[in-house]
Write a protein that binds this DNA or RNA. Structure first.
Lengths: 199, 199
DNA sequence: GTCTATAGACGGATAGAC
DNA sequence: GTCTATCCGTCTATAGAC
């Protein structure tokens, strides 16, 4: 087996450790703290090695984003065929690790063109899949898709979930309980196992 | 009249110009680009002057945030007594200038404790006022406030508005049209001038 | 109140040894 | 593949002249 191919799960190669370190630092201290020296230190290597694997820091950021995005997209594709697509969407977008990273990338994109283009492309794919999931759920309930466009519903679910995560990150939890209950009631109404509205 | 007091509207003092420059740079290139040298250059002064008005860069950021927050809060207090409180809320939170700055501060807060505390305190005051506005609107329509907690409704309106702004900033507009129409219909239903549901 | 000058730290990135 | 060493730029912040 080639050394660059995926070997054992544990004790990953330097490249993987660098990416993981970058994600952690971004989450804990913000993207500005993810410098070549700091990510190298956390990965247990010297900073020059960063530039061996990634020509420039932007390339490292893009790699981290792609990895996270791909993982998220995979989860979402599964969600479409789940029992409750909308709930799956909600759950995925509530994952603090990914929403935190996503928020950092949005901020990063604000002044790095490479990141911005990459983020937009990812965000569009995410929206497409989320919309597909919402379409499944709404159609199963016989909802008028013109009155409640799936793309809007999927935005609602995803964005509200992310908002809760972002706010929690700075200790803001006012109204979260009420919002969660409201969403819970909404999701129950669209649980695809109950095609007729009981009670 | 003292020289530190508010003089003419135009050609403001260095302190005000520094704050304005900081806000502009944060919006255009992200908070990381708002360095003492760059904000000073845009304000037309030397970087050392930044430290005359603001002991440390964090103090400058906090000042910019407070100014923006106070302006937003003032608009929101007016919104409560507006004809359509929810619509006013929506309009304020769609203002790209403020939502853009807000997003940057959220990112900044991720690794600056001073900013984090300040942001949280502001966010809580905003939520309280937004909730008051939502309460007015919902009660006028005879909505069951237990079923639809004003705090959750205000979060919905504000967060979705901000989300649209954040996405537009990176060129993501997929589904925005549908979302705007959905919100528009929602807002029309709660226009407080029509206490009974016409049509 | 605004400036010049500078200290001291840290950053991105590269050259070249092993 | 990983390291040491280094260049050069930018940053925050301070000292002190005007």
């Amino acid at each position: 087996m080639a050394s660059t191919a995926k070997t054992k799960e544990k004790d990953a190669g330097a490249r993987e450790r660098l990416m993981e370190a970058t994600a952690q630092i971004m989450l804990e201290e913000g993207y500005a703290a993810a410098t070549s020296r700091r990510v190298a230190a956390r990965a247990g290597v010297r900073s020059a090695l960063v530039y061996y694997y990634f020509p420039a820091m932007d390339d490292l950021f893009v790699a981290v984003m792609r990895a996270g995005a791909d993982a998220s997209l995979a989860r979402m594709r599964q969600a479409i065929s789940a029992d409750e697509p909308l709930r799956a969407l909600w759950t995925i977008n509530t994952d603090p690790r990914w929403t935190g990273l996503y928020a950092e990338f949005v901020a990063l994109a604000n002044h790095r063109k490479v990141i911005s283009a990459e983020l937009k492309s990812y965000a569009e794919r995410v929206r497409d899949i989320e919309t597909a999931a919402a379409t499944v759920a709404l159609r199963a309930q016989g909802v008028d898709l013109n009155e409640y466009p799936p793309v809007a519903i999927s935005m609602l679910v995803a964005q509200i979930a992310r908002s809760l995560g972002n706010e929690s990150a700075i200790g803001m939890t006012e109204g979260h309980e009420e919002m969660r209950e409201l969403v819970e009631r909404f999701l129950k109404r669209f649980a695809s196992t109950e095609h007729a509205q009981a009670t």
